[in-house]
Every structure is written in C-alpha cells, then in structure tokens.
C-alpha cells in the first residue's frame, strides 16, 4: 500500500523507487506547510512486540485489513486497542479495508467494519492498492485530521501554558502506516 502511494502519487521525479519503507512528503494543505513522514513497519508477527518503538511519537496511524480475511480485521481491532492504550485518544486513526478489487471474496461485511470504526473514533476507507482506489484520499484525510488535532492541541497548550516535554510532537507531524497483517498476504493473492 505504501508502495502504491509512493510510486503512483509522490514519485513525480520518476526516480526509480529503491524502497517502500518510509516516505517523506511535503504537503501544502490549507496554506500550511506540512511535513508528512510515512513509516512502514515490518508486518511479521514476530516483530509485533516492536510496535511501540515505531509508533512512540506518532500522531496518526493507518490500520489496514484484508476484506477477504476476517482474521486480519480482528488484528486491526487489537491494534486499535493497543494504540489507544499506549498513545491515548490524541492519535488519529484510519481504518482501511483493502483489496476491494476482490469484493466477491469479501469476508468482512462493510457495515460491521464501518460501525466499528465509528465506535472507536476512526474513519473507515475502502481501498485497493492493486487498482489504486481510495489510497490518496486515505492519506490526505488523515493528514488533515492530524493537522487539525495538532493545532487544537497547540492552542490548548498555549492556553494552559504548560511546558511539557510533549512539545516535541508539534514540530513535525509524523504518520505511521500501521498495516495490520492480512493473513493471506504471505501467499500473495
């Protein structure tokens, strides 16, 4: 998914992509300069415990599940719980039901997913990396939301005049792509 985003949308210089692990993108949303850093994490189950190191200072996360894989949706739920627990409600969450091109094999009902997303304060997207559907919107919306959240926090902070170390967060907006591992991914759908 990051690869799709990197290759199709942001690689305007047509440089051959060497990697799809992270991406820095300068965006201009509403006249504000934004430095978007997208970090992919290793999806293997054995690296799950390393999650906190990745998302430590992040402002948002995209949780991806495979619509044909019920199990992957379950993992998204676990991620939401973990992130909320670790980062508080400050974090902006997006949930992406990926592989909509395989809608015939869908195993996660649209309503279930959207309802869940609403319940946890996340926005749900339908995407397809294969067909490049909904991906740009997904990133753009999340960026906007993170920016609003950051500005609100800054205002709040200025009002409270508290100088905590969390000030660091406002320097850059960091977004991490946290794809919940779709179980079938290893076989290569």
């Amino acid at each position: 998914m990051v690869l799709r985003y990197v290759e199709d949308k942001f690689n305007d210089q047509h440089i051959q992509t060497l990697q799809a692990t992270f991406l820095n993108k300068k965006l201009n949303i509403g006249g504000k300069r934004i430095n978007l850093a997208i970090w992919d994490t290793a999806g293997q189950e054995r690296f799950h415990a390393l999650g906190p190191i990745y998302y430590r200072m992040s402002n948002g996360a995209i949780l991806v599940y495979d619509i044909t894989d019920e199990d992957s949706f379950q993992k998204v739920k676990n991620w939401v719980k973990e992130l909320k627990k670790m980062l508080g409600s400050e974090i902006c969450l997006s949930i992406a039901g990926n592989k909509v091109d395989l809608d015939k094999e869908r195993n996660v009902p649209v309503e279930v997913a959207e309802e869940y997303a609403k319940a946890v304060g996340a926005i749900h997207f339908h995407t397809s990396a294969k067909q490049n559907l909904g991906i740009e919107e997904l990133f753009l919306e999340l960026t906007q939301r993170m920016m609003e959240r950051a500005q609100a926090l800054e205002l709040q902070k200025a009002n409270e005049l508290t100088r905590t170390n969390s000030m660091r967060r406002n320097i850059v907006i960091v977004d991490e792509d946290e794809p919940a591992p779709p179980t079938r991914s290893c076989c290569g759908t």
Binding site: R46, Y54, M57
Partner: peptide, 23 residues
C-alpha cells in the same frame, strides 16, 4: 535533535535500529 529522529530517513532508520536491537 528530536525532530530529526522523528522524520526523515535518519529517524526511520534509527527507529528500525532500535527495533533490531530490541528484537
């Protein structure tokens, strides 16, 4: 500088190094 550790390739690679060590 923490801002450098949170963005850019330096931040990403360094975070991964931390992950590797932790692993």
């Amino acid at each position: 500088n923490a801002s450098r550790l949170m963005s850019g390739e330096g931040g990403y690679y360094f975070t991964n190094l931390c992950c590797a060590v932790s692993f």
